[in-house]
Design a protein around this nucleic acid. Structure first.
Lengths: 119, 119
DNA sequence: TATTTATTTCAATACTATTGGAAATATGGA
DNA sequence: TCCATATTTCCAATAGTATTGAAATAAATA
C-alpha cells in the first residue's frame, strides 16, 4: 500500500459530487453499515425504496466517483464501499479545507473575530 | 472536546451540495488559505476568474450551506470560512461514512459491531 | 434451448443548477 | 446631493442531473 494521498482537487470534486445527492448518500451509508460483505443491487434498491433503474444509476455514479466497488456473485452484483476512497476524501478535506488556523480545537473556540479587508 | 456535534444527514447533505461544485470548491479553498481575515467578494471574484454575479451566487450557496460567514466592512462584504462548519462535515463523514472497519488510525473502536449483510 | 431472476442500458421527460448582462441596492466621500 | 465603488438581485437562456418504464443483457437452472 503506497497511499501518498496525492489526491487531486479534480478527484475530490468528483467524489463530493457523487456523495452530494440524497439517494446516493443513503446508499453509501447503507453500504458502510453493511460492512465488507456488501449488498446486492436489488437489496440496496429495496432498502432505499428506489426503482431498480434509478438505483443502478446512482450506484454507477458512486462507483465512478471511486466510493464503491462491485463484483458479480452469481446473478447478483455485490456492491461494497471503497474504504480508501472515503479516507482519501477525508484526507483531502482535512488537508486543503481545514488547515493550520482551522486546526481542530487550536484557536479560540468562539466564532467572534474581526476580519479585515485584504487586497 | 465537549461538543457532541449531532450533525444531521440533511445538514451534511446541504454542505456536500455546497462544496461539490468546481467554482465553489475553488472559492472555499481560497478562503481557507486566506485565513481568519477573509477576503472581499470582489477579490474572490478576481482570484477565481468569475463575473461578479456568478461569484455572488456561489458565495450565497456556500453561506447557505454553513461553510462561510460574511460581514460588511465599509463598502465590501468580507467572507471568511466557518471553521466549525467544515469540522462538523468532517465529523459527520467520519462518524457515518467511515466507521469501524473503515478506521482511520486502525484503532478498534469502542463499539466493534459485526458487519453483516442487511436483509 | 427456454425460463426465471438480477441488473443494466435506453430514451423520454422533468427538474434543478449555472451563467452573466442589466438593473437595483448599499456605502463612503466630495 | 451627486458620483464612484462594491456587491447583490433579477431574469432569462442554457446546461446538467434525476427519474423511471420498457427493452436489453447476464447468469443459473431445468
Amino acid at each position: 500500500m503506497e497511499t501518498t494521498t496525492a489526491y487531486s482537487t479534480a478527484e475530490a470534486l468528483e467524489m463530493l459530487c457523487a456523495l452530494s445527492q440524497e439517494s446516493r448518500l443513503d446508499i453509501f451509508r447503507l453500504l458502510v453499515q453493511s460492512g465488507p460483505d456488501g449488498l446486492a443491487a436489488g437489496a440496496i434498491a429495496r432498502h432505499c425504496h428506489l426503482p431498480a433503474p434509478t438505483c443502478s444509476f446512482h450506484l454507477k455514479e458512486l462507483k465512478k466517483g471511486g466510493l464503491l466497488r462491485c463484483c458479480r456473485h452469481g446473478r447478483s452484483q455485490i456492491y461494497t464501499v471503497n474504504l480508501q476512497g472515503i479516507r482519501d476524501l477525508l484526507d483531502y478535506l482535512t488537508e486543503h479545507c481545514c488547515t493550520d488556523h482551522c486546526d481542530h480545537e487550536a484557536t479560540n473556540g468562539a466564532d467572534g473575530r474581526e476580519p479585515e479587508a485584504v487586497d
